[in-house]
């Protein structure tokens, strides 16, 4: 019995329940955040769509939010975003997969202790630093000598550094996928006198393909949402162009540009950022869901 007359066990359980409730509400805060993000984007985008027809917004091919006449067609921004992401994947998929296969199948423990930190360091570098690297080194020192007509700000250098940025993501997630392939498969293939490369290419790689695909889609989602590296490397000048040597504009780039200037917060241009944010959020969420789905569908194949 305790001082308040109730059995100790009961008083304990009351405290326990309060604590559990507190912990659960902290976990629930995540749901509130998600709901808050969706709500903010939707409510503010609706205000914008009161002035601009959503169909025109989604199908328009001219974006001009700072120069009259204002035009809000999101296609150039989406195209610029996908262009950067595409260049990034062209760089990151081979680099990341080769690094993953090397780490997972070939490297000795000693080599791993050197290579892993390099990848982790690369992953930890602030993206603004990669943007600086693109603007100050990749474009003038590497690309200009080969492609003299390249602009100071260009989509190619942005894609290259974003590729560098997402390579560690592909490498580490794909390595996990390779490692998850059961030993038996590997040993069986070796027993059939396959060389290490054949084991990797014909047995391990196909078995890990779902994990590898999901890592690539996740990397694409990261590339689509990347802001600072892209803004510094390619500036912001949205045009519907396929020329990677020119300036362009991404969705994240627009949001950064309009909020870093002194555009009045109640203007239509400023409100358009919420509509662009909504599109960006929808695309990255869609990619993440696809990535999760691929992993979930194939998770139990070998267990």
């Amino acid at each position: 019995m305790t001082t308040d007359g109730r059995p100790l066990v009961l008083r304990r359980s009351a405290t326990e329940r309060v604590i559990e409730l507190l912990l659960a509400s902290a976990a629930g805060a995540g749901i509130v955040t998600t709901a808050g993000i969706v709500l903010v984007l939707l409510l503010q985008a609706v205000q914008f769509f009161a002035f601009v027809n959503p169909i025109d917004f989604l199908t328009g091919t001219v974006w001009s939010a700072s120069i009259l006449p204002f035009r809000f067609g999101v296609i150039p921004l989406v195209a610029g975003t996908l262009g950067v992401a595409l260049i990034a994947l062209v760089v990151a998929v081979p680099l990341g997969l080769l690094a993953a296969v090397y780490l997972g199948e070939y490297a000795s423990n000693r080599t791993r202790t050197i290579v892993k930190p390099v990848l982790e360091t690369l992953a930890g570098i602030p993206t603004i630093v990669l943007g600086f690297f693109a603007l100050n080194f990749i474009t003038p020192e590497l690309l200009k000598p080969i492609l003299p007509e390249i602009g100071t700000f260009n989509m190619l250098s942005a894609g290259l550094v974003v590729g560098l940025l997402v390579t560690p993501l592909i490498a580490s997630l794909s390595e996990d996928a390779l490692r998850a392939v059961p030993r038996g498969l590997r040993e069986g293939a070796f027993a059939m006198a396959a060389t290490r490369f054949e084991v990797t290419r014909k047995v391990i790689f196909p078995a890990a393909l779902s994990g590898i695909m999901s890592s690539i889609i996740l990397a694409m989602s990261r590339a689509v949402g990347e802001t600072m590296a892209v803004v510094l490397a390619m500036g912001f000048n949205p045009r519907l162009t396929l020329d990677p040597l020119e300036q362009g504009g991404t969705m994240a780039g627009f949001i950064a540009q309009i909020t870093s200037g002194d555009t009045p917060q109640d203007s239509l241009q400023f409100k358009s950022l919420f509509a662009v944010g909504l599109v960006l959020f929808a695309i990255t969420l869609g990619l993440n869901l696809i990535s999760n789905r691929i992993v979930a569908r194939f998770r139990n194949r070998y267990s």
């Binding site: 749901i31 998600t34 993000i37 689509v224 949402g225 802001t227 909020t259 959020f281 990255t284 969420l285």
Partner: peptide, 21 residues
């Protein structure tokens, strides 16, 4: 399970979208 999935989805939201929020 929804709480868990939600946290992994939040990890994938672009940082600039957090800025808007």
């Amino acid at each position: 399970r929804i709480l868990r999935t939600n946290i992994s989805n939040l990890a994938g939201v672009p940082s600039i979208v957090y800025g808007i929020f």
